[in-house]
Design a protein around this nucleic acid. Structure first.
Lengths: 380, 380
DNA sequence: GCCGTAAATGAATCCGTGA
DNA sequence: CTCACGGATTCATTTACGG
């Protein structure tokens, strides 16, 4: 930054409050009344970590369709025109997605769930707005409703789109937690989960409280995968509050928008009963990269792999001498554990921690094992 | 229809040739050279029963990608997949979909396959053009490429859209054949199939002939579900001709468009080798049967025991022909592997999996062995 | 030829941080 | 903004090869 402050720079500084200031303005743990586009307008820019949205699917639910200017769309008649209806739905979609984009932090994430009736429109529009699709996820229902007439395939899935603010955005993904959740295999883009039923299904006077209540397992996976403890999750179509309930359980903050008084009441009661998981239950498997960084030099320094000892690759094609500063020497070729491994193999890159091995008590181990020991020893 | 003929009515009649006349104009069993939009322009209106399209996905790849072992991923960087912008891709999509709509019969069907990179744009545009989505189908890959950097979910599926010409169109769906193929359960919108590899994958000079060859089992299910014997199937992005090969095998007529001379050559060679299944194998279940559940259809579909092959009991008292939907035909007597075995023996029940045998490399095995192979191949 | 191990490969929008 | 560099990261399946 230069010494001279232009008006522009001052202005930018003036309107950009700190993250803590912005957070203090947020109505955490509250369900905002009214149309979600209006409600989101009351939230500050760049303040939300994750938006999860379950917008209306059905083009014939005209009551859900409002133009950005607030006027109602008259789409539902027996001879409603399909193209007018799509246009109205697109306008509505563009409006709420634009607001979601504004309130999302630059590294925040958007999730939308839909079916073939609406998801292609939603997906195209969010791409047009600049969102960058990271994955689409298929929720494969174990117990879908059959196609009673036998005229089509059983519609046994719904689609979720996961998107960042843009191609370069540094979105959040708890890779390790997902892999652990999936029995030590990478979590795939198809999720097999039952529909919401039984005790989980909210009822009022014996009737289901909401026609499209989502299973908590679905939100659980979404929030565990792409948010951190303490993150703020916004659900513009809150309904009976599945997003809020799971967010609270997982130690995330939440904000909802819902214009139906009945649903707000059901959701508030529901979330009040929810208890957050305790700290230890919330702890997930951490990626190595988020563990404290350890230089190979430290491992040498502490004598776990002393200077002067030999390291070698698994097949013993190369052997190198450890030098006092943590660099390696292989017949005159010198470099870091990573750089030298890369050079010797002629590879595009090399993780020296797993490439090089050392002998300890007659046992051959990757030098990564020594790093683990170092981390254990320096943990307080 | 009124009695008075307006000019308009006469004109319409004059340019509307009979179905047989139109069909006579079609280049059946030929691959049209050049751009698919141009090529489709040479086809008459309302002449095609089914369009299957595997358009470019418009992948927007960054630099090189290396596996953890250092090897390089062979990416799809072909010129035909490059577009300058979403706008350019949309224009292209609108153009070919409009031509497809024109050549399709009023009750014809459209299938398009894609990934999250392009499918939302394709889906929205085809809705804008008036197509009516009947289902979206998820092809869940048993063996997708992993996400090597651990940055996202493993992209383990692709999406197919099945659409009719409009809401009121009387499209074709072989419900019973699908149900038979799926263990006497309604066929769902998620299909579990392996990617195309091994002997099915076409190679030239030891290298894969086409970067995105689709598995035949996928086309098999598409064509069996939504076309009849003798129907005309058009594939505007013919590539190495999977659609043509499966169409020929299933007794459907086909037309392809392909602008790459190399792909056309590979496809022609491939389809020439293909043999149509015989009449009995092609006859699918028409009548509802009260047979026990059978998963035999999957074994047939994947080619472990291909339609048209013979199965027999251990003592070779009876021999039956396997039909496309997984039912058996023994001299006109037809049924599931269990039901027919029971009938022939006059037994109170029969486990078809152990009763029927097939020959594989000179070895006789119970068909249960093929089911084991299928399970291995499809995980679950 | 058979068996066990190693190498190859598939529509992929595939790193993060600090200077 | 770029550049440098530390270092994190893979599943199912087929084919090739060595003994």
């Amino acid at each position: 930054m230069g010494v001279i402050e232009t008006k522009k720079v001052r202005a930018r500084r003036a309107v950009k409050p700190s993250a803590a200031d912005v957070r203090a303005l947020l109505p955490l743990g509250r369900i905002l009344d009214g149309d979600c586009i209006e409600a989101m307008r009351s939230l500050p820019d760049n303040s939300i970590d994750c938006v999860f949205a379950d917008p209306p699917y059905n083009l014939q639910l005209g009551g859900d369709l409002n133009r950005p200017d607030g006027s109602e769309v008259d789409a539902v008649t027996d001879h409603w025109d399909q193209f007018d209806s799509f246009r109205a739905y697109d306008e509505f979609t563009r409006a709420w997605l634009a607001e979601a984009r504004r309130v999302l932090k630059p590294d925040g994430a958007l999730w939308v769930i839909g079916s073939y009736h609406n998801i292609y429109r939603v997906g195209a529009i969010l791409q047009d707005l600049g969102f960058w699709i990271l994955n689409d996820i298929v929720w494969r229902k174990t117990n879908p409703m059959p196609n009673f007439k036998g005229t089509r395939f059983t519609n046994a899935h719904e689609t979720l789109i996961w998107a960042s603010q843009g191609e370069k955005a540094r979105y959040h993904f708890n890779y390790r937690a997902m892999k652990t959740l999936n029995d030590e295999l990478q979590m795939r883009s198809d999720w097999v989960l039952p529909i919401c039923s039984g005790g989980e299904r909210l009822k009022e006077n014996g009737k289901k409280a909401h026609p499209t209540q989502k299973p908590e397992a679905l939100l659980y996976r979404v929030l565990l995968a792409t948010t951190e403890k303490g993150d703020v999750v916004l659900d513009p179509f809150f309904g009976t509050g599945t997003t809020g309930a799971v967010a609270k359980r997982l130690g995330r903050e939440w904000i909802g928008c819902e214009r139906e008084t009945f649903y707000r009441g059901v959701a508030e009661k529901r979330i009040a009963k929810e208890l957050p998981l305790d700290e230890s239950a919330l702890t997930t498997m951490q990626a190595k990269k988020s563990a404290p960084r350890v230089a190979f030099g430290s491992v040498v320094e502490t004598g776990l792999i002393p200077a002067g000892s030999k390291v070698f690759d698994k097949k013993r094609r190369w052997t190198a001498t450890v030098r006092a500063d943590g660099s390696l020497d292989c017949g005159g070729q010198v470099g870091s554990i990573h750089g030298l491994g890369k050079e010797l193999q002629g590879a595009p890159s090399c993780n020296g921690w797993t490439f090089w091995h050392y002998e300890n008590g007659g046992e051959v181990k990757p030098v990564d094992a020594a790093r683990d020991l170092y981390r254990l020893a320096s943990e307080d």
